[in-house]
Design a protein around this nucleic acid. Structure first.
Lengths: 205, 205, 205, 205
DNA sequence: AATGAATGAGCCTTCATTCAT
DNA sequence: AATGAATGAAGGCTCATTCAT
């Protein structure tokens, strides 16, 4: 009504996008900080400065925000990993590159956390930030694809799971140590994965 | 001091033990069903039929029940794994036996779950039941020991983590399929682990 | 920021004030009725008709409501006492006026109580309503000031305490009798205080 | 049945007395430590080592224990005060002696407390231990008696209340200071009381 | 759309009291 | 009598969600 008509996107729309982004940003931060399970919708909106009710104009639940963030992460990681693969000389090199990327991210992300989450029966922390979920998804995709094109005959799901599991769990251990040594962790994980792959029956002959 | 102490022998003691067990059973079920983080003390006692306050006669918190269950699990699994190791001819055989035992357990345990847990971002469920925590601890110990006696020089923590991670994650995938094929999953996991180990630098020579 | 901020002017704001007041009123009543220590947050909100959680939109704890009430009481009593002092011809008259004001308040307040609080070891009830806390605070201030300006050399804290104690305790007795005779009580208390003061060593000469 | 018959009091009866005493002792301690309002029956029996139910064989509620303790205190203090009165040369001396006795008790008792009870709206602490209740009761009796035998004509209840109030409140202030100076506090309280008395109308003449 | 107060279910925990043993 | 586990009513508090404005 009282809106200037010339602007390509009305103020309304812009605000809408901005708010959505604000919520996503806040959510990302608190997921990293508190861990998925401990995050409440209130935590998210508090961080946002928006009103409580506004959250529900954009998302139905914290699950939905998480999903959106993971999508987002996936969109951002896909090209990175793709280029990694392009530049890599063979599968092993790709795996190495991907794991280094992942551990680098872990290290940075982790540095941001306060050392909360004390008493809980510590059983792997991972998978609780959308970025990590996205990395996993991407790497998994890449592995599946690689396998499809002539890797071992082994069940691709099992294989992808195993690779990711190694990367993840070793990453967790890595984070528990001081100093954090991404190089050593990556070396180990890569060796384990690659030689594991070699042990599997080849596609033929 | 000067009072006659009524010996705790009769029915009282019996129901006390029974109640404790009832709580543990309920807790086990509920942890499996909802996942550790989502379980409330009330979930546990509700399933028990006991009064709210009664829970606190036995445990101080859900953490404590979890710990008790893990202890329990460890107590029951330790001898099994120990005997597995005694009977195994070499490390590979032990790994195979252990993984079979674990997957067998998973299969049974899993059969008990309803397929709830719909909306959640399904990122590994695992590690959240005390039994599994216990199994991991035991297997980890065994691996460490094996390594200590001339296995690869690799960082034992990384190694144990990786082996367990493979077993766990592949186990999860296994559970998602119909029919559940513990043999195939175990074959895969064992191969992956063993050949992964072979790729690691030997202690010497 | 880029959102239109709906100004808090309408009915919303009104009921917010109303609710706050409702809570304060309920709290006042309940403190008087049950005594500070026996009051629970739930007692307060119950009397309010509001939802449980609403209380916490306004106050963090019963302590905070109490403080708010005491502030309120102080604000209302300060001018009264001030004017009393202005109109009084000398300290004795002020003391008399203040005590009359206090006992008058006590009488009214007391009439509102049901005669609950049966079994408790009745050891002075007083000081547990915010108004009385406020009166005490004010009177204490006035006494301290008076003393500072040439009263007895005695320790001002002791002195204020003693005066207030007399007023309070005699007031309690007063309330226990039928009919309630504020005149007699005030006469006694004033005499006791004033002649007590006279007995103390003068500042000089 | 299996009891030796010769003993003047059977073991049963003795235990009964002992348990009652144990409860009373525990109660005394926790009343002093936590303050009447904050004490729960559980606090008392916990301290006792007895079983929860046993408490109810002896007392119906914490109120009842408190009353019993106050009685007990009264019984122990009566002779002390009586002798104080016998040895005192006139009323003033008695008041002084009694107040010294009271403040001495306060000082000792107080030393035993940890400095708990922080956040509470600090409005008089007193009257919450049975001993103090007893002292007050006794002093009150003495004052009443003294008055009856030719003191001021003033209302004896008011008078006793006022004297006790002064003693109590000044005692509270005393306890808040470091170092605790019972001499100064007693001097003040005695002066205030005695000169207050002098100002009251005499019985005749 | 945005707001933010209200809601009430639900969580954890403690407590007084009972009662079978 | 003594015991001590069981009970269930409260209490404090937080949260997701709604809805009048």
């Amino acid at each position: 009504m009282s809106q200037v008509a010339y602007l390509p996107a009305g103020k309304r729309e812009q605000t809408k996008v901005q708010n959505r982004q604000a919520i996503l940003d806040a959510a990302r931060a608190v997921f990293a900080e508190l861990g998925y399970d401990n995050v409440t919708v209130r935590d998210i909106i508090r961080r946002t400065g928006l009103a409580a009710g506004t959250f529900y104009n954009y998302f139905k639940s914290k699950e939905e925000v998480f999903a959106a963030l993971a999508d987002d992460g996936a969109r951002r990681f896909a090209p990175i990993l793709k280029s990694l693969r392009g530049r890599s000389n063979g599968f092993e090199e790709f795996v190495r590159a991907a794991i280094h990327a992942y551990y680098g991210f872990l290290e940075v992300e982790h540095a941001a956390w306060a050392e909360r989450r004390a008493g809980e029966p510590h059983l792997h922390v991972t998978g609780e930030t959308p970025e990590m979920a996205a990395v996993f998804a991407e790497v998994r995709g890449a592995i599946l694809e690689e396998i499809a094109r002539g890797g071992p005959t082994a069940d691709p799901d099992f294989l992808a799971s195993a690779c990711i599991a190694i990367a993840r769990e070793v990453g967790d251990r890595m984070l528990e140590r001081r100093p954090i040594d991404t190089q050593a962790a990556a070396d180990f994980a890569v060796t384990m994965i690659i030689s594991g792959l070699h042990g599997l029956p080849k596609a033929r002959g």
